[in-house]
Design a protein around this nucleic acid. Structure first.
Lengths: 160, 160
DNA sequence: TCAAATTAGTAAACTATGTTTACAGAATGC
DNA sequence: GCATTCTGTAAACATAGTTTACTAATTTGA
């Protein structure tokens, strides 16, 4: 594999390694989480399931809220919701406050999934720290603590 | 939309906002780039095309190298390569050194695409800096400068 | 040196994950 | 009250990737 980094035509990476690195980092974290969850017996969970659950654990209880936070359609979120209901991770109940909506509740298995995901992420971050160092990890964490929701909203307004 | 962040069952986000934030940041950057490129007239380019081109601009000239760097199958990369050849962004030539391989060359349009992508990323990073501040942007850049390729390799060895 | 193993490209079937379009019922804003 | 906007739902479609399978070229090693 070539490791040459110079570039004859002044290309994307010259200033763009940010996007490339974000993509690689995201992919690394997602696939590591999936592998560790499968090793813990959750072989029926997919990447989309885990991404959804991460946003659920923000305290969101309605599918449409999750969809907005994730920046994808509520139809896509609802496919995942139905999946997770079918394999017994969550349960949908009528919302007495708003009869259009359904409230998402975790089942007993759902709580185990959340705990295992939490443990897996701890393991992943430890491994990441070994590789990139605690300083880089802390910088990454603090830089990413920004309000990306607001950034996304601006994109939607100005670029779409 | 709820903004509650506490979590009754000690869920994923407690330590896991890293993954969630990485996902959101990556998504934000990718979709912004796609929108800006389309605004510049490249309406036939997809997200997969741009991701591929970003890795190409590292100096890689062979599809299989790109596949390894991206962490996806060479079949997936080859679909993108054929696409980009068809719409006149690049050109494949026989490699005299190794007759199994083909060397990827940029066309005139390919060079324009690379330049427009470069300009778009400059614009995106400026907008990002307005939102998260120059300090966070620099932290992000330096933390992500780590050797993710090596991190990925470790994952493949230990988790697969 | 020559057979075995590996690697590049190719192709097709399949899978995962999302969008778009469309609709009905419930809630909201004048 | 009535138009608008939201909810969930469903189906058709798009996109991006994997898996399996094959041929040809190169590399490895006994």
């Amino acid at each position: 594999m070539s490791t040459k980094l110079t570039n004859s035509s002044g290309g994307i990476v010259t200033q763009g390694s940010l996007g490339q690195a974000l993509m690689t980092a995201d992919q690394w974290l997602s696939s590591s989480l999936l592998h560790l969850m499968r090793a813990r017996g959750h072989e029926d969970l997919t990447g989309a399931h885990l991404a959804f659950l991460a946003f659920l654990e923000c305290g969101l209880t309605h599918a449409s809220d999750v969809a907005r936070r994730m920046g994808i359609s509520r139809q896509a979120v609802y496919k995942v919701t139905r999946d997770l209901e079918r394999i017994g991770v969550l349960r949908l109940e009528e919302d007495p406050q708003d009869r259009r909506q359904k409230v998402i509740h975790m089942t007993a298995r759902g709580d185990r999934v959340a705990q295992d995901a939490c443990d897996s992420l701890t393991e992943i971050e430890a491994r990441l720290q070994e590789r990139i160092g605690s300083k880089s990890l802390e910088q990454l964490r603090s830089a990413l603590a920004s309000d990306w929701g607001a950034v996304l909203a601006v994109v939607d307004d100005n670029l779409n």
